[in-house]
Design a protein around this nucleic acid. Sequence first.
RNA 1: GCCGCGUUCGUCUAGGGGUUUAGGACGCCGCCCUUUCACGGCGGUAACACGGGUUCAAAUCCCGUACGCGGUACCA
Length: 489
Amino acid sequence: MRVRFAPSPTGYLHIGGLRTALYNYLLARRHGGVFVLRIEDTDQTRFVADAEQDILAMMAWAGITYDEGPGAGGEYGPYRQSERSDRYAEIADALVASGHAYLAFDDNESLDAMRNRHRSESNPNPRYDHTTREEMRNSLTMDGEAVSQLLDAGTPYVVRLLVKPGKTVAFTDAVRGEVRFESDTVDDQVLMKSDGLPTYHLANIVDDHDMAITHVIRGEEWLPSTPKHVLLYEAMGWEVPTMAHLPLILSPTGGKLSKRNAEKQGIPVSVSQYVDAGYEPEALVNFLALLGWNPGDEQEVFSLGELVDAFAMERVGQSGVQFDLQKLNWFNEQWLRSKPEAELARRLLPVANERFGCEDEKYLAQAIGMMKERMTMAADVLDAEYLFEAPTDYDEKAVAKRWKEKSSETLAAFAGALADLETWTEDGLEEALKSFIAAKEIGMGALMFPLRMALSGVGGGPSLYSLMVLIGADVTQTRIQRAIERINV
RNA sequence: GCCGCGUUCGUCUAGGGGUUUAGGACGCCGCCCUUUCACGGCGGUAACACGGGUUCAAAUCCCGUACGCGGUACCA
């Protein structure tokens, strides 16, 4: 089995592109096959200089490795279409020679004119096909001599696929079963552009054949052009690979997950935006894997390796799937909790240092340990400022509601008790606190709430025992004094 | 318009003729746990697009309709 991911460097790697890459990768690894990365850079006008680099970087971030491709080598290279031009020209010539394709000299104006001529309410998008090609300037309508003259004069031309009407083009899609198209509805696709570069359709089938690709796994947007590809394979006498068209990822409201549409709804479309937002790669991969595929049992959290073991094309769905950021966030929480604090601390230290001057990785790791179950994103720990510095203000609503007349007095007394405490540990603190409230004959809340306010300034958060251990005895004392001075009832 | 693909809780989905009072997950709501907030546990909310047919029996098979999505470029 040989599969490929064939992105076009016309923009940064799209979230849908990453899923396509992932499914290809999973299938290859599952079956001990080869995963090829091929860069389809045949559109000069839309070329984006650093797009290829972004694609490579994002795949690496996600842990999706490939066996052949730019930077990985392989016997079927080069893996950039811009470096394979001669081969496409050769095939285009062969297609023309065998009568499966022809030369067309029409410029944009005459193309527009033809479309305007035929445009009507019942035919809003006239095609260059068996119904119109006879009106045009091409090697079918002109004699050989006229064609030679144009060629000699250097007239620009394209090569078009000659699609004969009255045929049924059928293929079996691994996701959808048998799909059939009538050739009457297929247009004479341009195979070679006038700039001498191939279109996707030509380059794709030539490369898939030359690179011995056995399974073509791509987005559903390609389904309508598959008959053209089948026709091309047949014209060359090549075997048609197994086709699999993945359901499209839709925006949360059901429309296309286009850049504009999605970002309006707060859904990033570039993988790099997820990286920048701080998502765990495992979470994005996990989420994407389940977007259009399911294992058939109730497991939801999968590592990449587990996905490899569980993945099966038969369990890929057929209908479009809506992107749900909340579910992605849930996966991020799951993965975050499974990561060692030390690892997260190492990652977050630079930001913690910048924001709070925190240079102590161990301290940060300890703070993360306390906050882990409250975080959606790793950086959320830094939003709990009180972990790093004294609160500058105290939640007014909570204070108004729960700060009593005696709170200051209680706190002051407790501060005194803490000053005598010898074992500054969670257990020691808990013991001290309990004996304090017992002696004072007050409820737990009468001390806990003021203490929490004094130490954190907010009503919710991690265990106070662990917080006090984290910030230490001195800081605890300072914060208590500060609160007594500042919170007046 | 035409061509193609699709349609089970708000979302991702299981189920593929009787096992179904249609299961799970996210979200939302409630209860429990708890110093708080979370986590966790328990419970609740909520779906077979519609109409015909086939069949003893249909969410499941067939046809139609509706709706959604994709395609309809010298873009991929």
